[in-house]
Write a protein that binds this DNA or RNA. Structure first.
Lengths: 140, 140
DNA sequence: TCCTATATGTGCATATTGCACTTATTATCT
DNA sequence: AGATAATAAGTGCAATATGCACATATAGGA
């Protein structure tokens, strides 16, 4: 199940979070719960792109958190290290040089694995929400 | 929207994650994406309990990740600092003393706010999953 | 006595992320 | 010409979160 060959924990799956205390605000604020990763992979599955373009697409994605450019560029470089994308510099006629990222077959496989995780995550959310609504219907 | 009065970022919402590299494995492994928090609040809305009991209940929750006791105890103490729960020691006839946690009205409000976040998060997951399935149906 | 289950914690290393700042090219406005 | 903004990609650091090893304490059973 681990795509990188360095697993140690029994079952891995979800992750986390903030806790809304300390220096950043909002409920569950400040962290992406790793959704930036699958979103980037999805966009790259749909079409090769450079970082700035991906940031713009994500901004219009209906996310209720802002996407830090830093985070996007960092994930892209990491994906390349891991073999999930390849990149090469594009010297355009206009504007600064940019790095075009293309997804690899491994990257597509990685995204598929991510989808399985997201499906489980969604089921868990459904379960918590249903049970939470029950708790408020009955008691109080 | 921020329940604690120390907000700073414009919109907060989701959070994150692992990246599956470094010392822990599995896809999206090792992080709870903060779901431990709403689950604990849910369980405490349903019934007052002590930490060990909550850990056991979470283990049978259908989670595909293991819950670190440390994390649970830490969140409970934090919740108390934030006024979302109250606690008092229970000296039982048998076994070591334990701390019984009870949710406060503020805690219930906090859980309701969490539910709203989880609903948005779920919608986002639906959107990503649908688009991801499209990407694989059409291309390849 | 030693082991196990119950019950709650501390401390540290590592991972993630927000944020401020840097570098560079080109287009537009005054 | 000079200033400013948009495009494009980063670096570095501090704050935060979490896994993991370990510590502590009570009580029951082999």
């Amino acid at each position: 199940m681990c795509m990188q060959g360095h697993g140690h924990r029994p079952a891995g799956g979800h992750h986390g979070g903030c806790g809304c205390h300390g220096t950043h605000g909002e409920l569950g604020g400040g962290r992406y719960e790793n959704l930036v990763q699958p979103i980037l992979l999805l966009l790259l599955c749909e079409k090769s792109a450079h970082g700035y373009e991906l940031i713009e697409k994500m901004s219009g994605f209906g996310l209720d958190f802002s996407v830090e450019p830093t985070t996007v560029y960092r994930y892209l470089r990491r994906f390349e290290e891991q073999g999930f994308v390849t990149s090469h510099w594009e010297t355009q006629d206009a504007g600064p040089a940019r790095r075009l990222y293309e997804i690899t077959p491994e990257g597509k496989g990685y995204f598929k694995a991510w989808m399985a995780v997201l499906r489980r995550r969604k089921d868990l959310l459904d379960f918590i929400l249903a049970r939470g609504e029950d708790a408020f219907d009955l008691g109080k």
